[in-house]
Write a protein that binds this DNA or RNA. Structure first.
Length: 227
DNA sequence: GCAAAGATTTGCT
DNA sequence: GCAAATCTTTGCC
């Protein structure tokens, strides 16, 4: 796995799709199939956190492949990236969506925990609303966005720099056994309107078409046939 | 030092 | 369709 991640990021993306993100071991383990990622490649990618060069926040992007790069976005969501390409070349794959396959109850509990934390200032009514919303949500929607992956897998700053290729890590990647590579579709990255062209339009979002767990941006409204 | 904006999600108008 | 929530990082004075 590490060897694949150390190559070019688009190739790495096509191998990460279909692989599993795993948290913990035993009865508490959570696992999910990765179905949507985005590539951020090089200091000259003006959509990437690496665009200002090496800083304290993005330092692990400049390190060896297979390591977790975790950052806090909008002051409330922790996003998980897998570092790619050789050391000194800053690149990573943002994990945007996964399909839960194991430990669904733990993921739901983790989602509820963070949802409640966020709305608790707004009162008991808001807390109950959040509990109910996440509690009745279909399993395939528990991690259908980058912030929601962070919530469902209890990801935070403590995971930054973790080796995702070490099977002893609390958070890790595992190749899909047996299954061949899934079909992959590409599109422009989401939420980077601040970036100039050509970066804004680069088709560096990769996803498994048809997955029920895609983020809103990758979910395709089925085209209506002309009458 | 301070001001501004952000690789998001949710809920209300 | 739009704004709020929330806090770290970056950039400018």
């Amino acid at each position: 796995m590490r060897g694949i991640l150390g190559g070019d990021t688009e190739t790495a993306a096509r191998h990460v799709l279909g692989a599993f993100l795993v948290r913990g071991t035993g009865p508490e383990a959570r696992a999910a199939r990765i179905v949507e990622v985005e590539a951020y490649v090089g200091e000259d990618d003006l959509a990437s956190h690496a665009r200002f060069g090496r800083t304290w926040r993005n330092a692990v992007m400049f390190g060896p492949p297979g390591v977790a790069y975790v950052y806090l976005v909008y002051g409330m969501y922790h996003c998980l990236n897998v570092v790619t390409e050789p050391a000194e070349q800053p690149a990573a794959l943002l994990i945007r969506a996964v399909e839960p396959v194991l430990g669904v109850d733990s993921m739901r509990a983790a989602r509820i925990d963070r949802a409640v934390r966020r709305v608790r200032r707004r009162g008991e009514e808001a807390v109950e609303r959040a509990r109910r919303a996440v509690g009745t949500m279909p399993a395939e929607r528990l991690a259908c966005g980058p912030g929601l992956v962070g919530d469902a897998f209890s990801i935070d700053a403590a995971d930054d720099g973790l080796d995702l290729c070490d099977e002893a890590s609390s958070l890790r990647l595992e190749l899909a056994a047996g299954a061949g590579p899934p079909p992959v579709q590409a599109g422009p990255r989401i939420g980077i309107d601040y970036a100039p062209e050509p970066w804004r339009s680069r088709p560096w979002r990769f996803f498994v078409p048809g997955s029920p767990s895609l983020s809103a941006g990758s979910r395709r409204v089925p085209r209506q046939e002309a009458p």
